[in-house]
Simulated scan of single mutants.
Amino acid sequence: MKKPELLGGLTPAQFLRDYWHKKPLLIRQAIPGFQAPLPRQELFELARRDEVESRLITQRDQGWDMQHGPFAKLPALKQKAWTLLVQGVNLHHPAADALLRQFRFISDARLDDLMISYATDGGGVGPHFDSYDVFLLQAHGQRRWRISAQDDLTLEEGVPLKILSNFQPEQEFVLEPGDMLYLPPHYAHDGVALGECMTYSVGFRAPAYQELGEAFLDFMMDSIDLPGRYADPELKPTEKPAELPAAMVARIRDELNKIRFTDDDITIFLGEHLSEPKPSVFFEARGEDLSFARFFQGAKKRGLVLHRKTQMLYRGTHVFINGESFQVGRADKAILTKLADQRRLEKQEFDSASEDLLEALHQWHESGWLELA
């Protein structure tokens, strides 16, 4: 991260030390003169698409209403108090992706997506809290934020949204375009549009340990090796045939306790799990195959860039891309580390690439995972 103005003059290290997971931070003109890269109509077009996650939230006298997209038609602009939420805009728009990448002073393993909230006057989603860190960047118009460090996070019952039943605001801010508010997890907040407005939310992944545990056990299924079969050669007669034998429980306990997992197992699991595309993410394979020779010629001339939908991680000798993993040698690792960190490779950076790596890059290009620059 080379733009300290994004954090109000703080360095990333200072921000992470003093604010991350700890307390809110209001940053006036985090991006001076910021103008929303997506006009209203372009955002509405995204909400019409099947592969884009969107929600429409309306507040009426009788309560809250939430609908899931796609939306062939949205309420009239003159109608007050409705909000359109479009998730993962960075996957579909290069400028939104570039904005999200400004927050890469935090690991890609944690950085999630950029959501855009469009609201007419009075629109919002009610007082609530998030289970993850979030940066709220005002992109157009004004929004009034009220926030609270309250411990009472009880939710209203019978409401389609997670709305706090006893919100007690402690601070209040009106954000203008370019202003940004950081909130740590579980910090109560309520944003209301003052006239038509758009807010960009940069969110971070915070998977539940239960989710990770279930996924890890599923991942380990292919790695478990427990030879042999249960046997009880010293079995004695029983007068309680329905009772589970204690010796059987102990014997199977001892066998299951032989299951072990290593740091390598956890590394590979996390790399594959956290780089796996979301269910709504699809890549478009090349319509025309580019021969290996022509691909290599183009890469040497123009360089390569990762597609904005591609997630690439690494640790040690392991490299992960879109849910797949493999091990590489030192020379190839240096090249792939650059590709993952910079999300691009310059034309001169292929000189030491192995034939296997070049073939892998060619296959990723054919799958739509990366592109010629």
Rank of each mutant, 00 (worst) to 15 (best):
Y230M: 10
Y230W: 09
Y230N: 10
A231G: 14
D232F: 03
P233Q: 04
P233K: 11
L235K: 10
L235D: 11
K236R: 14
T238E: 07
E239W: 03
K240Y: 04
P241C: 02
A242V: 05
E243T: 05
E243H: 08
E243I: 06
A246M: 11
A246Y: 07
A247R: 14
M248Q: 06
V249E: 05
A250E: 13
R251T: 12
I252G: 04
R253Y: 03
D254I: 00
E255N: 03
N257L: 13
N257S: 08
N257E: 12
K258H: 10
K258C: 09
I259V: 15
I259R: 04
I259W: 02
I259L: 10
R260A: 11
R260P: 06
R260E: 11
F261L: 13
T262K: 13
D264V: 03
D265T: 04
I266Q: 01
F269L: 05
F269Y: 07
L270D: 01
L270W: 02
E272C: 13
E272P: 09
E272N: 08
L274A: 07
S275Q: 07
S275V: 11
E276A: 13
P277T: 06
K278V: 08
P279N: 04
V281K: 01
F282P: 01
F282M: 01
F283E: 02
F283M: 04
E284P: 00
A285F: 02
R286N: 14
E288S: 06
D289R: 08
L290Y: 01
F292L: 15
F292R: 09
F292C: 08
F296T: 09
F296S: 14
G298V: 00
A299K: 05
A299M: 09
K300G: 02
R302P: 00
V305T: 03
V305N: 01
L306S: 12
H307D: 15
K309E: 09
Q311I: 15
Y314W: 10
R315V: 01
G316H: 08
G316L: 05
T317A: 13
H318Q: 14
V319M: 15
F320C: 12
